[in-house]
Design a protein around this nucleic acid. Structure first.
Lengths: 132, 132
DNA sequence: CTTGACTCCGTACCTGTGTACGGAGATTAC
DNA sequence: GTAATCTCCGTACACAGGTACGGAGTCAAG
């Protein structure tokens, strides 16, 4: 039951490119796997899990550096460190949402003003960007 | 009343770096200004406006390429093109907010689960990332 | 056994938005 | 007049997260 995967099959199984795996390896996100006489890397199922972990963490806004930190975690403090990191990311995400909401409102206002009949030949959008 | 500005004074007036102005110039966002015998660029107040325009548009999520498009606009279609671009950006921003909201919820759940007493030695955060 | 697909490696390149460097010439302040 | 500051130019570098290249070795199917 021990599937051995070449880098290409691992890439396919994990839904990434071969070069991405080599990149993660260099970055230290994946441990160097066994190398039989051929020199070809041999991966196992845990590597698929690990890459999925990385990809999932990325979608939650964790950088590869963050992920490296999460993957290094081990032992009793693991959970509280992971918790703190997640909480920190949560705050960042909340801030980003708030900032985008302000941007959304400004854009909405622009679009709305543009859709109202405007007599002056000057585009309200251009105008509103020029203002201080 | 025609203030002539050197690049450094323009940079200060507009709140950007000197290199940024040179960069915008190369990018085509600013037209090449007059060059007296010294070879030093001479800018006017409209350049200050223009840089502020760029900076403001950037905060609304427009890329420099978008800004170049906006700045090239002129004539009767100006407004409808600007309107369409703004509307498009609005949709992008709304999508981004929705995506971040989903991320926020996932992070919240992680943090909450972590804060509940968990008997298993496995960190719920690590665990939830490992899951498919 | 040949052919094609796969893998190896190091390195360079990509996007977007600037920043930094270094040597030479111009201008400004004292 | 001299020193300090500013500007010129082209080019390289920075960030993150990959992506691409090229020549050589290896493996699997027919």
């Amino acid at each position: 039951m021990k599937y051995r995967l070449t880098i290409g099959r691992l890439a396919e199984a994990a839904g990434v490119g071969v070069e991405t795996i080599r990149f993660y390896q260099r970055y230290g996100l994946l441990t160097e796997p066994e190398r039989p006489s051929s020199g070809y890397r041999e991966y196992g199922q845990t590597d698929v899990q690990r890459i999925r972990f990385i990809k999932k963490a990325q979608t939650l806004g964790f950088s590869l550096e963050d992920v490296a930190g999460l993957l290094k975690l081990d032992g009793p403090q693991t959970c509280s460190l992971a918790h703190d990191l997640a909480l920190h990311k949560l705050h960042l995400v909340e801030d980003k949402i708030a900032a985008l909401a302000r941007i959304r409102d400004a854009l909405q206002q622009m679009v709305r003003r543009c859709e109202l009949k405007h007599k002056s030949g000057i585009c309200p959008i251009i105008q509103s960007l020029v203002q201080d």
